Amino acid sequence: MNDFPFPILFDSRDVVIIDKPAGLAVHPGPKTPHSLEDHLPALANGGFVPVAAHRLDRDTSGCLAVARTKRGAKLLSAAFEERKAEKAYWAILSSLPATAEGLVDAPLIKVSTAETGWRMVVRRDGKPARTHWQVLDAATRLVEFRPETGRTHQIRVHAARIGCPIAGDPVYGDGIGPMRLHARSLAITLPDGQRLDASCDPPADWPTSPGPESR
């Protein structure tokens, strides 16, 4: 794995957890021909081509689980399907919420128009989506989000739902500057009982993070 260019936070025969940089898409697309997939072969263990077990938005940094083997892919798939993955995200918001903590329970559905393309919106006929949040540092508007569900753009939409879009969000916020969303930690309990834990700090250009007493 010497050729893999990004930090490895957890390493086992079947699974690794990496620190994905902001600005790099997990999968290739029309606007993102270069993606994390270009680098995953460096994590291979045998003939299996490593695959990301979930996704992070292109502009979201942080913890991402990757299966190195077929067995790892099956274990991770089962863990995520059974909701045995605990995620915590840090975000800098465009404004400070009115309260120190809360829960957003707002179903999400994907909509698309020719003018604006696709996005996720809160709608009664959407899929259930629940996100807990807590202010970590009022001075920097740093907030921790812990999603119960894993819908596309869930944290971004729910942050906007409480009137405080994520700073730099180009779809649900003002799009000014880089989007400040970071997958701070990931804990996965595999079907065989193994527990994988990883965490990483936000990118260096973020405002100063809170001290241990605030985390």
Results as ranks from 00 to 15, higher is better:
138 A>S: 07
132 H>F: 14
142 L>W: 04
119 R>N: 08
109 I>E: 15
113 T>H: 07
120 M>S: 05
96 L>S: 02
111 V>Q: 14
130 R>P: 06
91 A>V: 04
99 T>M: 14
78 A>V: 08
89 Y>L: 03
138 A>T: 01
103 L>F: 10
125 D>I: 07
119 R>E: 01
84 K>M: 15
81 E>N: 13
124 R>P: 05
90 W>E: 00
131 T>K: 01
101 E>N: 09
114 A>L: 14
77 S>E: 11
87 K>G: 03
116 T>F: 14
125 D>K: 05
128 P>D: 05
85 A>H: 09
92 I>M: 08
86 E>C: 04
96 L>Q: 06
105 D>A: 08
132 H>P: 08
116 T>M: 09
114 A>G: 11
117 G>S: 01
105 D>H: 03
97 P>E: 07
105 D>I: 04
80 F>A: 03
83 R>I: 03
95 S>I: 11
79 A>F: 13
87 K>R: 14
93 L>V: 10
142 L>I: 07
102 G>M: 06
113 T>F: 13
125 D>R: 03
132 H>T: 08
135 V>R: 01
94 S>G: 09
142 L>V: 00
132 H>L: 09
121 V>M: 05
123 R>I: 10
117 G>V: 06
131 T>H: 07
133 W>E: 01
136 L>T: 00
79 A>N: 12
122 V>K: 06
111 V>I: 10
124 R>F: 08
99 T>S: 12
101 E>H: 12
104 V>E: 07
118 W>F: 15
143 V>D: 02
121 V>R: 03
106 A>W: 07
132 H>M: 11
101 E>Y: 05
113 T>E: 08
103 L>C: 03
106 A>P: 07
117 G>Q: 03
121 V>Y: 10
90 W>V: 02
97 P>L: 04
103 L>D: 08
137 D>G: 00
101 E>K: 05
143 V>N: 00
115 E>W: 12
